[in-house]
């Protein structure tokens, strides 16, 4: 029996759930331990639906919708694990790896990388598409941190954290299409930035080894993406 008047019934993967309206499908799934793969989602900053990993099928909707940006509605029937979705998740992962120069063996984030975890989860054994091998820079001009564009997957988590949480807006995205790059100020070296506060939040937000602190070696990297949401909550409370 529905004991809360303000909840709505939905079905996810044949599981009947009563959920609060106003939540996104992703939030509901995370609360109910239904696995949804994500890359650009970071709790605490706005969702943009860019990585397309969290796509779900909704009965009666002929398009696949991203779970992170779609709100639940009453009597929604959602599927998160059909063959089609699994196939597309695999292709997306392959494209992530083929886009830039990801070499786990020499990466500082080896073992602590969300992209690497994603590869394991979708069962990636090889990449069927040709690697694009773009020419990417490694920006070491900042006194403490390094930005390695080779390992960037353009999730723009750093951009959103810097803008929404820190409020500095040091990062943004330049160009378009496959030539997009994360930039600091006028595409100048990070170390010369006039807006960066060196707070290091982008480092914690980054899911891969694209932003990392200097003076550490493989295995020493500690990233804490959860701290972003904690910060947001604390700032709301104004303790």
């Amino acid at each position: 029996m529905n004991c809360y008047m303000n909840t709505i019934p939905i079905i996810i993967d044949d599981k009947k759930l009563e959920v609060d309206p106003g939540k996104t499908i992703l939030e509901v799934c995370r609360e109910n331990e239904i696995e949804i793969l994500t890359m650009c989602h970071l709790k605490g900053v706005l969702d943009i639906g860019a990585c397309r990993l969290c796509l779900v099928e909704i009965e009666g909707v002929n398009k696949l919708l991203s779970a992170c940006t779609t709100k639940v509605a009453a009597n929604m029937i959602i599927r998160t694990n059909t063959d089609r979705i699994k196939k597309y998740q695999r292709i997306t992962t392959e494209l992530f790896f083929a886009e830039r120069n990801h070499v786990c063996a020499v990466c500082v984030a080896n073992g602590k990388c969300e992209l690497q975890d994603l590869g394991y989860k979708v069962g990636l054994d090889h990449i069927r598409y040709p690697h694009l091998f773009p020419q990417c820079e490694v920006d070491t001009s900042h006194p403490w941190y390094v930005m390695d564009h080779n390992r960037c997957i353009m999730c723009t988590r750093c951009v959103r954290v810097c803008n929404e949480v820190e409020g500095a807006h040091n990062w943004d995205v330049m160009n378009r299409g496959h030539q997009v790059r994360v930039i600091s100020d006028f595409n100048s070296p990070w170390g010369e930035s006039v807006t960066c506060t060196s707070c290091g939040k982008c480092l914690h937000a980054c899911p891969t080894g694209a932003i990392w602190p200097k003076a550490i070696v493989q295995g020493q990297l500690q990233k804490n993406p959860g701290m972003i949401n904690e910060l947001v909550e604390k700032r709301k409370m104004k303790l």
């Binding site: 943004d172 330049m174 160009n175 378009r176 006039v194």
Partner: peptide
């Protein structure tokens, strides 16, 4: 922010 202007220009 400078990066916001630069990102718009290059788009």
């Amino acid at each position: 922010p400078p990066s916001r202007v630069y990102s718009t220009v290059t788009f």
